[in-house]
Write a protein that binds this DNA or RNA. Sequence first.
DNA 1: CGCAGATTGTTATATAGTAGAACATTCTTC
DNA 2: GAAGAATGTTCTACTATATAACAATCTGCG
Lengths: 153, 153
Amino acid sequence: MDDVKTPVRKRFKTETVSGIVGYRLRRAQMHIFQQFNLHFAEFDLRPAEFSVLALIADNPGSKQTEIAHALGIKRANFVALINGLEARGFTERRLPAGDRRSHALFLTSLGKEMMTRLRKTQSEFEARWVTRLGGPEARDQLLALLDRLVAKD
Amino acid sequence: MDDVKTPVRKRFKTETVSGIVGYRLRRAQMHIFQQFNLHFAEFDLRPAEFSVLALIADNPGSKQTEIAHALGIKRANFVALINGLEARGFTERRLPAGDRRSHALFLTSLGKEMMTRLRKTQSEFEARWVTRLGGPEARDQLLALLDRLVAKD
DNA sequence: CGCAGATTGTTATATAGTAGAACATTCTTC
DNA sequence: GAAGAATGTTCTACTATATAACAATCTGCG
């Protein structure tokens, strides 16, 4: 993060890249993730970890594959992620009755407490972006535009 | 990429994460970058490499630090990037008269040819997203919204 | 001038994130 | 019961990012 101090010295032409949707998307995403890590510093939690906890909270008993797939994470890469959350006592794997291959994921009571605190912090964090965008309508508009980018047709 | 085949089996609650601006931004950005790599496969060029070539083309003679900073890349990480482009014969470092510390970056003639081809491919690629978004106005709207997210105030 | 501090490029290193292949176990289907 | 699919896992590789340290060079100030 040496972005802060550097003043622009010369006239610099950035029109070519700054007109590219993918480029601008990436810059915005990087910025929000950096701010996320600052805002959630006390929790020592990465965005991906937050999303996993949130999804387990909303879908207790889901299989690893289901959570991973919903988040666009490969099964193989999900293992280390969930291992980390389990090692910190936030989640647990239970063996479901039906299928002995799969692991059903749940938040522990500690995980639920954490999630309660996270939701609060997340609300504050999200509010910042909604304000910047110009209100809930602008936010909805942004989400709708992003939706068109990932649409399957 | 095992996203394609998997049908949704169960009712899955994703409202929590899908309402988060940063999450949606990341998913959209990942999708566009994956498509970029497919669309530019014949060039074997990553998005970051493309942006470096484009910026040098628009600002010949710039210092490494200037290009890196404009793209939000750390000086240290830029070295390997520019080494790669130089090794492929697209760019060159020249020693400017004034400052013997810095390296002035230029496209080689091969780099310029490459850039001409890249611009064409990029135009096609960009047009796809503009179409998806619903036209140039929608694109401008998206860029304006993204701008608000990274605004310094 | 001469020196302190800043700038530039570089190396080295550490950490995440992503991707693909392969495997054992278990389930499903026919 | 056998063939094939699903699930979790390990291993490996590659890309991206971040920080610290360093040598060479430049700048500014006393």
